[in-house]
């Protein structure tokens, strides 16, 4: 802290601290805390609602009795007495109605109750979707890794800098297009009567229901998140000293052994970052499964969360769902770090 002030002077240091504070609180702490808080309560009928309901019934009975009384009074011949009795009944009625209104208000106003019940709301069907989403996201990460590793290695180590930059540019350009447009494009490509099925038809295959079977989600996701795997891998592979690859080869290593013993160990932080990013993006993706399946295949967990929030309008259960996903994603991060023996410092690099 003293060093900071010495290096930047008081006004600039104060500004840096302020912005850091805003960053930490506003972007890291606050959203999580709000989501956690939201997931921990729900609105419930107040305690003693049943007794109140009995009370209200009693009061309504009294109203009915008063209505009978009124009929009796209206048969009264003495005008003065009739007027006086009616006024008394009116007053009683009004009093009862006020009481009923008050009681009904209490009965129908829910109270905020802190509970873990929101987390227990997930039925087996939703739990299955949750598990499927996690498994599918793992699969997307694995596919992206398998697809990207050779690309990243080729770009980083085999190609001339010029070819490498052309390939990288080719990878980046599609990302200049809006994500939704890209997904819609894939939807059209993989459609029942899209170009892929047209091509398959030429070879005598029946149309494949890519979208309806959920395959389309995979394809579009690998496509949509491939860069998040390529770049971390590329960055880390670029720092690999080519002499090490040559040294391994010179000492008799096969291509497979060079990768197993030298390249992949070096690439561990990049693999971790790439897998974490692809996994998080896949597990948290809403647009891709929504557009690619159009409801024809079973939903992604994010779609369930969306439904809790905006269709069932139960934000608390929605928050609990979202939090469950967050916890699993966080566990995945630590799991990857453990498996690949990297720490946060390696990843931050």
């Amino acid at each position: 802290m003293t060093r900071l002030f010495r290096a930047f002077g008081t006004p600039l240091s104060a500004l840096i601290l302020l912005f850091s504070g805003i960053w930490i609180f506003g972007l890291i702490a606050a959203p999580q805390l709000i989501m956690i808080e939201q997931s921990l309560w729900r609105m419930e009928r107040p305690t003693g609602a049943a007794e109140i309901s009995v009370q209200i019934d009693g009061l309504y009975n009294q109203l009915d009795v008063l209505a009978l009384d009124r009929a009796t009074v209206e048969a009264e011949t003495d005008a003065a007495k009739r007027a006086a009795d009616l006024a008394a009944i009116d007053a009683k009625e009004a009093g009862l109605k006020v009481d009923i209104a008050a009681l009904e208000e209490t009965e129908s106003t829910p109270v905020k109750v802190y509970t873990l019940a929101n987390f227990g709301q997930m039925g087996t069907a939703h739990l299955a979707i949750f598990a499927k989403t996690i498994a599918a996201s793992l699969a997307v990460s694995a596919i992206a890794l398998v697809v990207c590793y050779p690309i990243a290695y080729a770009v980083a180590k085999l190609e001339t800098p010029r070819t490498a930059s052309v390939i990288m540019l080719g990878l980046v350009i599609p990302y200049a297009i809006n994500e939704l447009l890209r997904i819609f494009a894939w939807q059209m490509i993989l459609n029942q009567n899209g170009p892929v099925n047209l091509l398959l038809g030429l070879f005598g295959f029946d149309p494949v229901p890519f979208l309806e079977s959920g395959t389309g989600v995979f394809v579009a996701m690998v496509y949509a998140y491939i860069l998040f795997m390529v770049f971390p891998l590329y960055n880390v592979l670029e720092t690999l000293d080519s002499n090490q690859v040559e040294a391994a080869r010179d000492l008799g290593a096969s291509t497979w052994n060079i990768h197993r013993r030298v390249v992949i160990p070096h690439a561990r932080p990049g693999i971790a970052v790439g897998c974490i990013m692809t996994f998080m993006l896949s597990a948290g993706s809403y647009a891709v499964p929504y557009i690619m399946t159009r409801g024809t295949a079973s939903p992604w967990f994010t779609q369930l969360i969306y439904n809790r929030f905006f269709e069932a309008t139960n934000w608390n259960v929605g928050a609990a769902y979202a939090l469950s996903l967050l916890v699993v994603c966080t566990l995945f991060i630590f799991g990857m770090m453990r498996i690949l023996k990297v720490n946060l410092k390696d990843i931050a690099k």
């Binding site: 000293d241 002499n243 090490q244 040559e246 040294a247 030298v262």
Partner: peptide, 8 residues
């Protein structure tokens, strides 16, 4: 033996 040794 490499100039930078290229130890693993």
């Amino acid at each position: 033996i490499f100039q930078n040794l290229a130890l693993f």
